[in-house]
Design a protein around this nucleic acid. Sequence first.
DNA 1: GCCAACGTTGGC
DNA 2: GCCAACGTTGGC
Length: 153
Amino acid sequence: MQYWLMKSEPLTFGIDDLKAMPNKTDHWDGVRNYQARNMMRDDMQKGDLIFFYHSNCKPPGIVGIAEVAKTSYPDHTAFDPESKYYDPKSDPDKPRWFMVNVKYKKKFKNMISLQTLRENPLIENMVLLRPGNRLSITPVSETEWKTILAMTD
DNA sequence: GCCAACGTTGGC
DNA sequence: GCCAACGTTGGC
């Protein structure tokens, strides 16, 4: 069992959007970064737990929990010229981009803002909090997971 | 809206 | 393979 953090812009796709999906499940498409892809493709297992993070909003922070509902498979939006995630270099016979399915688990009564996370010395080395980090998917250690859960009410 | 920090692209 | 130019991310 591993833990992850996945960022999404709430205006594009927030945790309430995930909850509203059939079976509260959706595919996590549009990841176009190799490090993030590799984590989805190689490391994410069904049942892994995910902190759902809202980025590019006020305030940014962790808003709830989801879980990996299906291991990786090719991201079909890369094959669709109409999609904003279209990548002509991704060949259906040799897909470049992958995605997993993610299922809504819960939404925190109060989100844990980025600022609040930064103020907790127990998680100061978290990948998310490292200077310059822009990865949309980051691993979370068990200690970090438990520490952050303890910050919820 | 600004801009620092990255990642990617493509000429050479 | 280098690296300048460019695009993106995402906090502020």
